[in-house]
């Protein structure tokens, strides 16, 4: 059986401890040990984006990082962002625009969208399409996702406190 090692890090704003096997990916730890199941595993190869999480302020693939590397890190998952108005608006617009069907890509897609609006506050459709091209969606054909992100970025959202 696998050995396990103690680990301490910040997760969605709270300091936590975990014991992990060296071979456990960050995605597997979040899902299987911490119940954060909105971080989905679609390929374990870094290709699909469903497992995106934010580590130390940067969006990364949690399937391509070993959990044991996370000592001292700050991790946010798509289930975090409590009180984040941008994430709240994205969620609302994704649901209203039907920018998700099965919902499996959604957590990763929301993080990609949030990243884009943080760095490019008023992206055009091409920039949105380019930016979310690291996230695979099999259901929507992407247009509704582009619409929802565009609307979030361009319409009546006061993000000044956010920036």
């Amino acid at each position: 059986m696998d050995p396990s090692y103690a680990l301490s890090f910040k997760l969605n704003g709270r300091q936590v401890k975990q014991e992990v096997s060296p071979r456990t990916s960050l995605a597997d730890m979040l899902r299987n040990q911490m119940g954060l199941t909105a971080t989905h595993i679609g390929c374990e190869q870094g290709a699909c984006g469903a497992c995106n999480v934010v580590v130390d302020g940067k969006t990364v693939r949690s399937c391509l990082i070993f959990a044991i590397q996370m000592e001292g890190a700050e991790i946010e998952t798509s289930q975090g962002f409590e009180g984040d108005p941008l994430m709240a608006t994205l969620r609302e617009n994704f649901a209203n625009r039907n920018a998700l069907q099965c919902g499996f890509c959604t957590g990763g897609m929301l993080l990609a969208a949030r990243d884009l609006i943080k760095t490019t506050p008023k992206p055009n459709r091409e920039e949105i399409r380019e930016h979310i091209s690291g996230n695979f969606c099999r259901c929507t054909g992407y247009e509704a996702i582009v619409d929802a992100i565009w609307k979030t970025a361009h319409e009546a959202l006061d993000l000044e406190g956010e920036k």
Partner: peptide, 23 residues
């Protein structure tokens, strides 16, 4: 009526439950 799907709201909030989420 432009009402969102209730399950879309759920998924957007990370509240989906897929088979692999069940332990």
């Amino acid at each position: 009526q432009d009402k969102p799907r209730r399950n879309a709201v759920r998924h957007a909030h990370g509240r989906g439950k897929f088979v692999d989420d069940i332990v």
